[in-house]
């Protein structure tokens, strides 16, 4: 009975996911597309739960609920304000007659031309069909679970995913941190941050809620980080939670953003990558190899790297949300 119910749950969930994704991509109103995408992230977290991946569900919860939605909504606001500015004209520039069009297009996308329907559909169907066929014919394999299980003793932690992330495949995680940092450098190379034209809601409600939520978020982030050594949790999830808390602060802040001074900010952003690399290089000389640790030192080293990585991920996510170099940082 409960097996059958689980199957029904899966089918309803997947139908919902596909339906939401389809309506999202078919929207002409961008705001509607964004709200549907937020819902998509929620359903996705449920799907990860059903696939026995609570770690991923945790990360999806923090990123889907806290970061992506806010990022998309604020991008829409930026596009709208750019369109308004163009229509009105700026002090150094007369109003742009095409501005009215731009205003229309900033938050609406006209339905796509009929001409592209057949080629796009057939291409997507062929690709999807090939993938489905390949997946159905793929033989069942045990995967790497037994191998990981066998080596858990030397990993220094009790949670297999943390062991894979920070020990067995540490180079993946190291490069991942580097990529996140590079994304931030890319965003910073585009210029200084745009001050959002909108104001936060006046009144005591939002500050009061923040006073409750931000401390709880910090405690939860630290708890998730600590839990990572023996249960679902770890640096990525904790970093995402703390990053979301930072984004909440940025959003609620009137006008001026609470940017950290330049040097500590940069140190914090690079702490994860830097410490990881430093410990990895030390491992090359006195340990088993590059990015490897001696088993008896593994636990403390992993904890140190995780703390630094959490800090860096959280700061980077907030900086990516602000999208732009801190003001007064040029020379």
């Amino acid at each position: 009975m409960s097996n059958l119910l689980l199957v029904i749950f899966d089918l309803v969930l997947l139908a919902g996911l596909l339906g939401v994704a389809w309506r999202c991509l078919a929207s002409t109103d961008l705001f509607r597309a964004v709200v549907l995408f937020i819902t998509f992230g929620l359903l996705l977290a449920l799907a990860w739960v059903r696939l026995e991946a609570p770690d991923i569900a945790l990360a999806e919860a923090a990123i889907g609920a806290g970061i992506t939605g806010a990022l998309l909504l604020v991008t829409l606001e930026r596009l709208r304000s750019i369109a308004v500015e163009r229509r009105r004209g700026r002090p150094d520039q007369p109003p742009d007659p095409a501005g009215a069009d731009a205003l229309l297009h900033a938050l609406h996308d006209p339905p796509p031309p009929r001409r592209t329907f057949v080629p796009a559909l057939s291409f997507a169907l062929v690709v999807g069909g090939l993938m489905v066929t390949a997946l159905w014919h793929q033989p069942d394999a045990v995967g790497l679970e037994p191998v990981v299980d066998e080596h858990m003793g030397v990993s220094g932690v009790d949670h297999p995913i943390t062991a894979v992330l920070l020990n067995f495949r540490a180079y993946d995680t190291f490069l991942e941190l580097a990529i996140v940092l590079i994304a931030l450098l890319g965003a910073w190379s585009l210029g200084r941050y745009d001050r959002l034209p909108a104001r936060p809601a006046p009144g005591p409600i939002l500050p009061g809620t923040l006073r409750l939520l931000v401390p709880v978020a910090i405690v939860t982030g630290v708890y998730i980080l600590w839990a990572g050594s023996h249960a679902p949790g770890g640096a990525f999830q904790a970093g995402a939670i703390l990053g979301a808390a930072g984004i909440l602060l940025v959003l609620a802040r009137p006008r001026d953003l609470p940017m950290a001074p330049s040097t500590p900010l940069r140190l914090g952003l690079t702490a994860g990558v830097g410490l990881f690399l430093a410990i990895g290089i030390v491992g090359l000389f006195i340990g088993p190899g590059l990015l490897g640790y001696p088993p008896e030192w593994a636990y403390p080293l992993i904890i140190v790297i995780e703390i630094a990585a959490t800090l860096s991920i959280a700061l980077t996510l907030v900086a990516l949300f602000i999208a732009g170099r801190p003001a007064g940082d040029d020379h």
Partner: peptide
């Protein structure tokens, strides 16, 4: 978070 971002959206 999304609701706070929503209030900022349009302002």
């Amino acid at each position: 978070v999304a609701a706070v971002a929503f209030v900022r959206q349009h302002g």
